[in-house]
Design a protein around this nucleic acid. Structure first.
Length: 470
RNA sequence: GCCCCCAUCGUCUAGUGGCCUAGGACACCACCCUUUCAAGGUGGCGGCACGGGUUCGAAUCCCGUUGGGGGUGCCA
């Protein structure tokens, strides 16, 4: 047996990838890299639901997105729990033969009734000494020994469980199939897992699993239970209420670097005064011992702040490339053939500091590629309600007809009109902006006006003037 | 109900008995810069849940209270 640590990540395929799972995966991955160990991916597909291949692919893709590369030498798998069903059953039988497990014919109704009568709850060990064999309607239960079980957890220290509080749990269902508790342990044993790093919700399972490891004749692994991620109401993030799909964040343009960095600051922090740090530093500094003990709120606002920061950190070339991907995707609101990459490239730097997620670039520049940009009615009305709106815009149009067509003269021309009417540029550009872009806010105006060209700019201004008088 | 975990600004955290008048980040507010909006700069607001101990000294250690969370399946 090798001495290099073996970590594992064991998601069940549910069709999407949960951000909490992403964090757990990241912890395991970083630890594997840092300690020159192995990251084992095991798909826990034993739930009746048949193994949908695309779900597994979804998990692999999502992992790849956060930098967990299945081609990397530290990566092993994916394994599928369902393929080890025979081993799980065999282990359960072994436990029966060694006297660590026994069959029980009690239905949950019977168990509940007796518990109620005794004023207790849970299964009371009724069948412990009835020497039942396997049979129809019989489940196999683990015989929980007397005493205490102490779980040594890297995050939490020693956690003590009195075995009397742990009921004789089921290993094999009455239909003979193994339950998670044993399947998980048997797989970890056969895959030589040395470190189990998972979410806190599994902590109550751990004494049971530790007993299984021992009853099966093995040294339990190093356990580490990291706090769960919660929503604003401080409840565990759930698919129903919360936005938890990694894929969704990817689609709206959260950068993987930002997601990784943000996830790693939940329950842990890198040294120094800034949380935005290179992944290498995180890998070097991360220790399970330093992970916080309390649940962390998954704050989308802060994620976005991280993302904005990462967007601004991109080189212009990278930003343009990333934006092009979005602008040519289904997210684009214009006909594909009207997209002109060189037009976007010319004003990319003006957009870069103004978006928080990549998806926002579409609305930032749509007026360049849309023949008739939709007009924000409320903003239009408000903008054209001033006395100066129409006269100044008319004069701007006149000036636009004769000036040299470049940013400097465009700006100068507009300023000149402003000076004549004693209106500051800040106010003056309102109607012009709406006329050109359809929106009250956006990137600086004169660059796109130049890009749009004299003819088109004039057309839009005149259309707006007509609209204003209508 | 029972078992387990947890408790520092609104949020994420730094802090491991004296460097704490508690540091940083996000959010928020103000000002500067500015063609809107951002970005950037400067400043501000804001916290050790409570009560007892231990100690010369406690955010840090102990006990209790309160509050939150997780688990209590023939789900994983």
């Amino acid at each position: 047996m090798s001495t290099s640590p073996r970590y594992r990540f064991a998601p069940s395929p549910t069709g999407y990838f949960h951000v909490g799972g992403a964090r757990t995966a990241l912890y395991n991955w970083l630890l594997a890299l840092k300690n020159n160990g192995t990251f084992v991916l095991r798909i826990e597909d034993t739930d009746e639901s048949r193994n949908e291949p695309q779900w597994t692919q979804g998990i692999i893709d999502a992992l790849a997105w956060i930098g967990i590369d299945s081609k990397d030498s530290h990566f092993e798998g994916p394994y599928f729990q369902s393929t080890y069903a025979a081993e799980h059953v065999a282990a359960a039988h072994k436990l029966f033969e060694s006297g660590n497990a026994y069959y029980c014919d009690q239905t949950s109704e019977q168990i509940q009734e007796r518990a109620k009568a005794a004023g207790l709850n849970g299964y009371d060990g009724f069948s412990r000494d009835r020497k039942l064999g396997p049979g129809l309607g019989h489940v196999l239960r683990f015989r929980v020994p007397e005493g205490k079980t102490i779980v040594h957890d890297t995050v939490r220290g020693a956690v003590e469980f009195d075995n009397t509080t742990i009921e004789d749990f089921v290993l094999l269902r009455s239909n003979g199939t193994p339950v998670f508790l044993i399947a998980n342990v048997v797989d970890d044993i056969t895959m030589n897992i040395t470190h189990v790093v998972r979410a806190e919700e599994h902590l109550p399972n751990t004494p049971k699993q530790q007993m299984l490891w021992e009853a099966l004749g093995h040294q339990p692994p190093v356990w580490a239970h990291v706090p769960v991620l919660v929503n604003e109401q401080r409840k565990k993030l759930s698919k129903r209420r919360d936005k938890v799909a990694v894929e969704q964040y990817r689609e709206e343009g959260i950068l993987p670097e930002a997601m990784i960095n943000y996830l790693m600051t939940l329950g842990w922090a890198p040294s120094g005064d800034t949380e935005i740090v290179p992944l290498q530093q995180i890998q070097d500094e991360f220790r399970l011992e330093d992970v916080n003990h309390s649940p962390a709120f998954f704050d989308i606002k802060k994620l976005q702040a991280f993302n904005g920061e990462y967007i601004r950190l991109m080189t212009p070339e990278r930003f343009i490339a990333a934006a092009n991907e979005v602008l040519t995707s289904a997210a684009a609101t214009w006909p594909a053939e009207q997209y002109k990459p060189e037009l976007f490239a010319a004003m990319a730097s003006l957009v870069q500091t103004r978006v928080v997620v990549m998806a926002e670039v579409v609305a930032m520049v749509d007026f360049l590629f849309l023949e008739e940009p939709p007009i924000d009615e409320a903003a239009f009305t408000k903008s054209f309600s001033s006395d100066f709106a129409q006269p100044t815009l008319t004069e701007i149009a006149e000036a636009f007809e004769r000036i040299d067509w470049n940013v400097e003269s465009i700006k100068a021309a507009v300023e000149e009109v402003g000076a004549r009417h004693d209106v500051k540029l800040g106010k003056l550009q309102g109607p012009l902006r709406i006329a050109i872009t359809g929106r009250p806010v956006g990137p600086p105006l004169f660059e796109p006006i130049e890009l749009l060209g004299r003819q088109e700019s004039l057309r839009r201004i005149r259309a707006a003037l007509v609209r204003a008088t209508a």
